[in-house]
């Protein structure tokens, strides 16, 4: 009898404990951060302060930017306009995607750099698109270039020129892409990223429609991923999203990716870009 009472008491206790544990996980209000997120943030800040290996790719990218290269033997710094004038890199990253009249398209940083490499330096697009993202012991040149350009916009505010009708149009397309349901699971981006307080396993999923959610999705790119020691760009992240969604892989540097980046980056307008990221 005594034993039974004790058991019941223990059961009651564990049940209470279980329900107490359930509560915070189930109801982390929008805008608030749970303990896991805070720990990850602490870890990231520490890594950023102590030194981020992404800086090595920035160094490499600076060399690529300034050297005369490619079949035409031209330096990007003397030929490539990232929107603020030929060769100007400071602040260019946070003001992209933007409309480029010479290309007749809205372009994000990576797409613009690839465009410059093709048009100004004479590289072939197909060669650049063959292995566009980093892998084991391999970093595409455009990734280093994006890293260099992005680092020159650290601690500046996002300012995608949404007043430009071209950019606005692409922004609206991006909004539709985010809401487009398809694939074997009938998912859209918004299925997971369209509401506050959602999670997948331990990771909080930002709501891309809100400034704060969009900000957490654009900060930290381009970033160095410690798993595999690779440098990855925001273009890579977008392509990988399609893979995770079981969609067909989008073409490298395509309109779709630019539209998504325009939507997300413009939603984060007015917030500070903290510079190169580091990821686990």
């Amino acid at each position: 009898m005594k034993y039974r009472i004790a058991m019941a008491a223990i059961l009651a206790l564990t049940m209470q404990a279980a329900s107490a544990q359930d509560k915070p996980a189930a109801a982390v209000p929008a805008g608030q951060k749970d303990a896991t997120t805070l720990e990850f943030e602490k870890f990231r800040t520490q890594m950023e302060q102590e030194g981020n290996p992404a800086e090595l790719f920035e160094l490499q990218g600076e060399e690529f930017w300034k050297a005369k290269r490619g079949p035409k033997n031209v330096a990007l710094t003397a030929s490539c306009d990232l929107g603020l004038g030929v060769g100007v890199v400071k602040g260019a990253y946070v003001q992209m995607p933007r409309y480029f009249a010479d290309a007749g398209k809205v372009m994000d940083a990576e797409r613009r750099i690839v465009w410059c490499m093709v048009e100004k330096q004479g590289y072939k697009f197909d060669d650049l698109a063959r292995r566009p993202f980093a892998g084991d012991n391999y970093t595409p040149e455009q990734t280093s270039l994006v890293t260099y350009v992005a680092a020159q916009s650290a601690n500046m505010k996002f300012a995608v020129p949404l007043k430009d009708p071209h950019v606005r149009e692409v922004y609206e397309i991006g909004k539709e892409v985010v809401a487009y349901r398809a694939g074997p699971y009938d998912f859209s981006c918004n299925t997971c990223h369209g509401a506050d307080g959602k999670r997948i396993r331990m990771q909080n999923l930002p709501n891309l429609g809100t400034p704060q959610g969009a900000l957490s999705a654009v900060l930290g790119w381009p970033g160095y991923r410690m798993t595999g020691s690779v440098m990855l760009t925001h273009q890579w992240r977008m392509s990988d999203c399609f893979r995770q969604q079981r969609f067909p892989q989008p073409k490298y540097a395509s309109d779709t990716i630019t539209a998504l980046l325009t939507y997300m980056t413009a939603n984060a307008n007015g917030h500070m870009y903290k510079g190169l990221g580091i990821k686990r």
């Binding site: 102590e50 030194g51 290996p53 090595l56 410690m226 020691s229």
Partner: peptide
């Protein structure tokens, strides 16, 4: 020690 190590 990891690839691309950082020393402080």
């Amino acid at each position: 020690v990891s690839t691309n190590p950082v020393f402080n």
